[in-house]
Design a protein around this nucleic acid. Structure first.
Length: 545
RNA sequence: GGCCCGUUGGUGAAGUGGUUGAACACACAUGCCUUUCACGCAUGCAUUCAUGGGUUCAAAUCCCGUACGGGUCACCA
């Protein structure tokens, strides 16, 4: 029997041979420097901050090099399958408005992009390896393997299936065939040509050179369920899909020697590797990876619910991903992520602690850079889903709402109070009568002079005043009631006055908004208009009693 | 336990042998300015880069040991 026939018995029902696939997926026509990257999650749940971080780097590196970033689903472990896992991931990315160039439901010429649909392809290459005597069937059971592991541990030997421990390696074709005939289950293992005493060096784009022993483990490449292991699928897929840069979590560093060997054995060119460190969180004294279950902000739904735009998350990921991004971003107003040149060697090597406070601060800067109409559109969209009542008010008073959102905005140093769309209501509710008369509460620590307030609104206030006139009038009003019209004068001789002009403004502010802290009072009064100010002062009078 | 990686302030970090008496940003504190808050400005916040030793005229930066943290050692990815 030839080795070819042997391989066909061991790996049955394969439609094409590997040469067919080599032809079917020709090299991509890449010009200089164009990167092909891939984000390759296993569908065990929904998209979270960690996957977003990894995919962010894939996308940004591909995009800035004019290359291609594709999505590949690694679902070769049927036990871990989650219902609708694949659809969930694709949907999450689409909802976030993150688009890959190729992938399930994105299209592309190098598919299928779901590994469970690529079984035939892997098997064709497994056959090739068996035929070339670079792989062999292994009939060891899980129990036997466990036992062997225990012995190795006891004897302080390196653990694994290698050298003399690789029992099935020496099986002859006839012996193996006999077992197959008897219906014994088997897997296909790589016949590793490596020597543990040799060194291989990973030239990692992020971590630098890492030296490790050559792989000598006869790792499993095809499981008994006829699906490949991660290692084998990685080699075959990234070869056929012509990935130029494998960007993945650094938990893979230690198995890189396996991958390097697999590429060599299969006759593939080795891609570049960039191993990224995970997003972490501190819990007591230990550091752990972020977790969907334990960290609420790890879920993308958290941001959706609060109304934090995807762009903010991307900005945050950009700042932790490339150390020089933040300074650049602050110095180049109007520019965005796409204008920045990201580099692998600026990526963090150790883990990055996720800092929600920092994200919020980035969000505030982001919101402060938006135009009022943009905030309006965004908040309208947000409240449609999360705050029907406020949404109706925004629709009803569109122009008014935009004016309010424009207070202290589109100026050289805009306010930075909004960090999410959910904050908009918190900062503007009192400007809407429907909410104001229902929700205003006066927890007064001091009493305010109603006469002064009435005098002000009836005899001084004019909606059309310029800010300067407005302030001059307050200065005129203040002394009438014993307040200093200049803060300095008050500070110099506090005993001579009831208070300063600041106290006068505070009285007006509280009477009109029920709050002691609001944006510019002039703008607020101007937007409310005389009639409503009068009404609010009357309302205040009733409530102060 | 073997192999690999990391350790700079409350946080993210810059830094690859000498303009570092350790940048920048976030957070925090105080003060100034001010109609409030915010913004802004000023100041403070690591006498020191986990630790011990070595190389050097010179080390956060190079070498060795130790401690601590992380990863990995599956028919999981």
């Amino acid at each position: 029997m030839t080795r070819k026939e042997y391989s066909e018995i061991l790996v049955p029902n394969v439609e094409h041979d590997y040469k067919y696939y080599e032809e079917k997926y020709p090299s991509r026509n890449l010009s200089n420097g164009e990167m092909v990257t891939r984000f390759a999650p296993s569908p065990t749940g929904f998209v979270h901050m960690g996957s977003l971080y990894a995919s962010f780097i894939d996308l940004v590196m591909a995009k800035q090099s004019n290359g291609i970033a594709y999505l590949r689903i690694e679902d070769t472990d049927q036990k871990r399958e989650v219902e609708n896992g694949i659809e969930g991931i694709v949907k999450d990315f689409k909802n976030l408005n993150i688009n890959f160039d190729e992938g399930p439901s994105f299209g592309g010429n190098y598919g299928p992009y779901i590994q469970s649909e690529r079984g035939d392809i892997y098997r064709a290459y497994v056959r090739k390896l068996i035929e070339e005597d670079k792989a062999y069937p292994c009939f060891c059971s899980a129990e036997e393997l466990d036992e062997q592991r225990n012995i190795q541990e006891l004897e302080k030997e390196r653990i694994g299936y290698y050298g003399v421990w690789a029992k099935c390696r020496t099986l002859t074709m006839d012996e193996a065939l006999e077992k197959v005939k008897n219906g014994e289950k088997y897997v296909i293992r790589l016949k590793s040509p490596g020597n543990f005493n040799n060194k291989v060096i990973l030239h990692d784009l992020i971590k630098g050179n890492i030296e490790m022993p050559e792989n000598d483990m006869d790792i499993v490449i095809l499981k008994s369920d006829n699906l490949p292991t991660y290692h084998f699928a990685h080699a075959v897929d990234d070869h056929l899909m012509h990935t130029t840069h494998v960007i993945r979590g650094d938990e893979w560093v230690s198995s890189w020697n396996v991958h390097e060997q697999l590429f060599k054995v299969l006759g593939f060119d080795l891609p570049n590797y960039a191993h990224i460190s995970p997003l972490t969180v501190k819990e007591g004294n230990t550091i752990r990876k972020i977790s969907k279950r334990k960290d609420p902000w790890a879920a993308v739904s958290y941001y959706h619910q609060k109304g934090i735009p995807t762009e903010v998350i991307r900005l945050y990921l950009a700042t932790i991903n490339n150390s020089t991004f933040e300074a650049w971003y602050l110095q180049n107003p109007g520019k965005g992520i796409d204008d920045f040149k990201f580099e692998f060697d600026k990526c963090p090597i150790g883990g990055s602690l996720f800092d929600i406070q920092k994200l919020i601060s980035i969000s505030k800067v982001y919101f402060s850079s938006l135009k009022a109409t943009e905030v309006y559109d965004g908040v309208l969209n947000y409240t449609k889903e999360y705050d029907q009542e406020f949404n109706e008010l925004l629709v009803k008073y569109k122009d008014y709402a935009i004016n309010i959102l424009n207070i202290e905005r589109e100026i050289p140093r805009p306010r930075r109070d909004i960090s999410a769309y959910e904050d908009v209501r918190t900062y503007t509710w009192y400007m809407f009568d429907e909410l104001y008369y229902k929700e205003a509460k006066f927890n007064l620590e001091k009493e305010y002079n109603i006469e002064l307030l009435k005098d002000y609104v009836n005899n001084y206030f004019d909606q059309n005043d310029s800010k300067e006139d407005w302030f001059n009038k307050i200065k005129e009003l203040a002394p009438k009631y014993g307040y200093a019209s200049e803060t300095k004068a008050y500070k110099a001789e506090p005993e001579k006055y009831k208070g300063s002009i600041g106290d006068v403004c505070e009285a007006i502010r509280v009477a009109v908004t029920s709050l002691t802290m609001t944006p510019d009072l002039y703008e607020i009064l101007k937007n409310l208009g005389k009639e409503r100010v009068i009404k609010r002062i009357e309302f205040f009078e009733e409530n102060q009693k």
